[in-house]
């Protein structure tokens, strides 16, 4: 079904792409990716140019940046936080842990990978990935965010 989006829809999509707010969640990682993630928010990389802001509450966020292999302890918190984020939302998995478990794979306390619990849109591999790579992943996430439907009534559903 190809319908030309209305001016309002295009404006909303554009605005959404220019104002992605991040929420950062560590699901039992070693903190390496978190340090790189925070480095990516420092004045050196100046992500505010893209309208990016780090938010303290998942209810304000558009993009969830999740690091760590998902441990038994963090699994419930992860699912709560995913549910608390208003749609449209995008999940970015930072580092190799959420993708595969990395060095923690097969540990009795690890229940990951991340995609067992929440749908993952972008993977940023690396142990840890460089801030530039994380930034590139977030830019991909912004494109996915813009492509999401504007209203549920449009026929699509928010994911």
């Amino acid at each position: 079904m190809d319908v030309k989006p209305s001016l309002f829809d295009r404006l909303v999509r554009y605005a959404r792409g220019r104002s992605p707010w991040l929420f950062h969640l560590n699901c039992g990682g070693c903190n390496g990716c978190d340090i790189e993630f925070l480095a990516c928010l420092t004045p050196r990389y100046d992500v505010e140019q893209l309208g990016i802001r780090l938010e303290g509450s998942p209810r304000h966020a558009d993009i969830l940046c999740i690091s760590g292999p998902v441990t038994r302890n963090t699994q419930a918190a992860l699912q709560t936080i995913y549910a608390q984020t208003p749609a449209p939302k995008v999940v970015v998995a930072i580092g190799s842990c959420p993708a595969s478990g990395n060095v923690f794979a097969d540990s009795p306390s690890v229940v990951g990978p991340l995609e067992n619990f929440v749908p993952v849109d972008v993977y940023v591999p690396g142990c840890p990935p460089r801030p530039d790579a994380i930034l590139e992943g977030i830019v991909h996430a912004i494109e996915i965010l813009k492509a999401k439907v504007v209203r549920s009534a449009e026929g699509g559903t928010y994911v």
């Binding site: 909303v12 554009y14 605005a15 959404r16 104002s19 004045p43 100046d46 505010e48 140019q49 208003p86």
Partner: peptide, 24 residues
């Protein structure tokens, strides 16, 4: 902080985005 900072229309886009998010 020696950054470039947000573009001119940033607060407007923040507002439009927030108003069109699906409420929980």
């Amino acid at each position: 902080q020696s950054r470039i900072g947000p573009p001119f229309y940033q607060p407007l886009f923040d507002f439009i985005k927030l108003m069109t998010k699906e409420p929980l």
